[in-house]
Deep mutational scan, measured.
Amino acid sequence: TTFEIRVGDLRITLHNADEEEIRWAEEALRRGIHADEILRTLEERRR
């Protein structure tokens, strides 16, 4: 599944994310964390 998060002009697309990952990514985007860093962190958490 694919889920797109939008916060203002910012956007990130997550693939195969669970609800916790989606909530975490949305909050991180709101705090101004760059999408590349969010994706990198999620990848590390999945390992």
Results as ranks from 00 to 15, higher is better:
10 L>V: 15
7 V>D: 04
8 G>D: 03
2 T>E: 15
28 A>K: 06
4 E>N: 01
13 T>A: 02
14 L>R: 01
1 T>A: 10
18 D>T: 14
29 L>I: 06
36 D>N: 07
3 F>K: 15
2 T>D: 15
15 H>M: 09
31 R>I: 10
42 L>I: 15
47 R>P: 05
47 R>L: 15
11 R>V: 15
10 L>Y: 12
20 E>K: 10
45 R>A: 09
29 L>V: 06
37 E>T: 10
3 F>Q: 15
14 L>K: 00
1 T>F: 13
37 E>C: 09
13 T>L: 06
40 R>H: 12
16 N>Q: 05
14 L>N: 00
28 A>G: 06
39 L>F: 14
45 R>W: 14
9 D>I: 13
6 R>H: 09
18 D>C: 08
43 E>N: 13
11 R>C: 13
25 A>H: 00
27 E>M: 14
26 E>W: 15
25 A>M: 04
4 E>K: 01
8 G>L: 03
10 L>P: 00
25 A>V: 12
16 N>L: 05
45 R>L: 07
8 G>H: 02
23 R>P: 01
43 E>G: 09
40 R>I: 09
25 A>S: 05
31 R>C: 07
7 V>A: 02
39 L>Q: 06
41 T>L: 10
33 I>E: 08
38 I>A: 02
23 R>N: 07
26 E>G: 14
28 A>W: 14
9 D>F: 07
3 F>Y: 10
33 I>T: 09
29 L>W: 04
17 A>T: 08
15 H>G: 03
17 A>Q: 02
13 T>I: 11
31 R>Q: 08
12 I>C: 02
24 W>I: 07
19 E>S: 10
7 V>S: 03
47 R>V: 14
41 T>A: 13
3 F>E: 14
36 D>E: 13
15 H>W: 14
46 R>S: 04
43 E>S: 14
20 E>M: 08
22 I>Y: 06
26 E>T: 15
42 L>K: 00
30 R>T: 10
28 A>E: 09
39 L>C: 10
15 H>Y: 15
33 I>M: 14
8 G>I: 02
21 E>S: 08
39 L>I: 12
28 A>Y: 07
21 E>P: 00
32 G>C: 07
5 I>M: 04
39 L>A: 03
3 F>T: 15
39 L>V: 06
26 E>D: 04
15 H>N: 08
22 I>N: 01
40 R>V: 08
47 R>C: 08
9 D>G: 05
38 I>Y: 01
31 R>T: 08
13 T>F: 03
22 I>W: 04
12 I>V: 13
38 I>Q: 00
15 H>I: 10
19 E>A: 11
37 E>S: 08
6 R>S: 13
31 R>A: 11
23 R>H: 08
5 I>E: 07
15 H>S: 07
14 L>F: 05
29 L>E: 01
43 E>F: 14
11 R>Y: 12
47 R>Y: 14
9 D>N: 11
47 R>H: 13
23 R>G: 07
5 I>H: 01
2 T>F: 13
30 R>P: 00
25 A>I: 07
11 R>W: 10
38 I>V: 09
1 T>W: 10
15 H>P: 03
3 F>G: 13
16 N>M: 07
32 G>K: 04
18 D>Y: 08
7 V>E: 04
25 A>F: 04
42 L>W: 03
33 I>V: 13
42 L>G: 00
14 L>I: 10
10 L>E: 12
28 A>I: 03
18 D>P: 03
10 L>G: 03
24 W>H: 02
39 L>W: 08
45 R>I: 10
7 V>H: 04
40 R>K: 12
26 E>H: 10
23 R>F: 07
2 T>I: 15
41 T>F: 11
3 F>I: 15
15 H>R: 06
40 R>E: 10
9 D>S: 12
5 I>V: 09
12 I>A: 01
31 R>M: 14
21 E>F: 10
20 E>D: 10
34 H>W: 09
23 R>K: 12
19 E>V: 12
9 D>T: 12
1 T>Q: 12
2 T>L: 08
39 L>H: 11
15 H>D: 04
36 D>M: 11
43 E>I: 11
39 L>S: 04
11 R>K: 13
34 H>Y: 12
17 A>L: 06
28 A>H: 05
41 T>Q: 11
35 A>C: 03
12 I>Y: 13
46 R>W: 06
32 G>S: 03
22 I>S: 04
47 R>W: 11
15 H>Q: 05
32 G>V: 01
27 E>C: 15
6 R>L: 13
16 N>S: 05
31 R>D: 07
41 T>D: 06
10 L>A: 11
26 E>S: 13
12 I>F: 07
28 A>Q: 10
38 I>F: 05
24 W>P: 00
40 R>A: 08
29 L>H: 02
20 E>Y: 11
13 T>P: 03
30 R>M: 11
16 N>K: 04
44 E>A: 14
5 I>D: 05
39 L>Y: 15
26 E>F: 15
38 I>K: 00
4 E>C: 12
6 R>I: 15
42 L>E: 00
